Amino acid sequence: MNTTHQGQSKQTALITGAAGGIGYQLACIFAAHDYNLVLVDRNGVKLVEIAIKFQEEFGNLVTNIVKDLSISTAPEEIFTELQLANIKVDVLVNNAGFGIYGLFHETDLATELEMLQVNLVCLTHLTKLFVKGMVEQGEGKILNVASAAAFQPGPLMAVYFATKAYILSFSEAIANELEDTGVTVTVLCPGSTESAFHERTGMAGSKLLKGKKMMDAKTVAEVGYHALMKGKTIVIPGFVNKLLAKSVRFVPRKLVTKIVRNMQEDK
């Protein structure tokens, strides 16, 4: 754990997957709003660069934790490190996640098990660890990053879509349970977003993305941040994404699945 300190702010936000994409943009927003930060990512070099940048620009207390969240012990290790450092987390942002593209019977099992650990198990574990303290103190905020993929099955990314559906359902359920505790849960469901995600998954050439203009990560992060501050439960950035998410409820599931398959294909 590495801490960079120049000044003191009132609350602390923990953000996973903070080295790039939506996670990095969320970190920028929290820094600009005078939060202390706990940044978690496996890219330690990038985290150091970010901490120095935030120190120079905003004077934040930035704590870097370099962890591979696909390892099952990572959430408990993060929680223990922060307890030992006497750092209280007021806002938990479960942003880390990745996908894999291809037919389920052909994709790599080890990679998919790691994806389940990062996207689903780690998110649940971290939420479990930190939410108790939030309830005890009578305040706290949790932002879980799902996807517009959460609203329908996703052939060619079957496991990824399923993990996002879990995040949506889980977040809605505990948001209900936490009513009147002072703790709110927001689930952010962005559509396709400009980031390295699509190149890593191997779906950059799909009909869904080819030649399409995507929302930038900064805009998605801003929408998510403001929804979190307002205590909203579900936020879907972009009118078209909202429309698509709502419309699938009125179309037979088998047809929805066929449409998604067609959009995901690369020819």
Results as ranks from 00 to 15, higher is better:
59 G>Q: 05
251 V>W: 05
82 L>M: 14
69 L>N: 05
244 L>T: 12
97 G>D: 06
225 Y>P: 01
117 Q>G: 09
218 K>S: 13
239 F>T: 14
96 A>Y: 05
226 H>C: 01
12 T>F: 09
67 K>I: 01
97 G>S: 10
46 K>Q: 14
120 L>E: 13
188 L>S: 05
55 Q>K: 15
176 N>T: 14
159 V>N: 08
144 N>D: 11
79 F>I: 10
107 T>S: 15
232 K>Q: 13
260 V>M: 03
248 V>I: 11
176 N>Y: 10
131 V>I: 15
98 F>N: 02
240 V>S: 14
96 A>N: 11
105 H>P: 00
237 P>I: 09
47 L>Q: 07
36 N>H: 00
47 L>T: 04
80 T>R: 07
225 Y>V: 08
189 C>A: 06
56 E>W: 04
180 D>T: 15
50 I>S: 03
104 F>P: 00
12 T>D: 08
91 V>E: 05
117 Q>A: 12
197 F>Q: 04
34 D>V: 00
10 K>G: 11
20 G>F: 10
153 P>S: 09
4 T>N: 00
195 S>D: 05
248 V>Y: 01
132 K>P: 01
233 T>M: 03
2 N>R: 13
5 H>A: 06
134 M>N: 01
157 M>K: 03
229 M>S: 05
127 T>I: 03
140 G>C: 10
176 N>W: 12
138 G>M: 09
74 A>T: 03
71 I>T: 07
23 G>H: 08
176 N>G: 08
106 E>R: 10
76 E>W: 07
51 A>W: 03
170 F>M: 13
24 Y>H: 12
245 A>M: 10
136 E>H: 09
88 K>C: 11
115 M>F: 09
47 L>R: 04
177 E>F: 14
48 V>G: 01
129 L>H: 05
120 L>R: 04
164 K>W: 04
89 V>G: 02
87 I>T: 11
94 N>H: 08
200 R>T: 02
32 A>W: 00
144 N>P: 07
154 G>C: 02
244 L>D: 00
152 Q>R: 08
242 K>N: 09
181 T>P: 02
193 T>L: 09
266 D>W: 03
206 S>W: 02
186 T>V: 07
264 Q>H: 15
141 K>D: 06
164 K>A: 09
254 K>G: 13
209 L>T: 04
49 E>R: 11
86 N>L: 06
177 E>R: 07
65 I>P: 05
250 F>T: 06
161 F>A: 06
127 T>P: 05
131 V>P: 05
210 K>M: 08
136 E>N: 12
229 M>L: 15
202 G>W: 05
214 M>L: 15
88 K>M: 15
119 N>G: 00
264 Q>E: 09
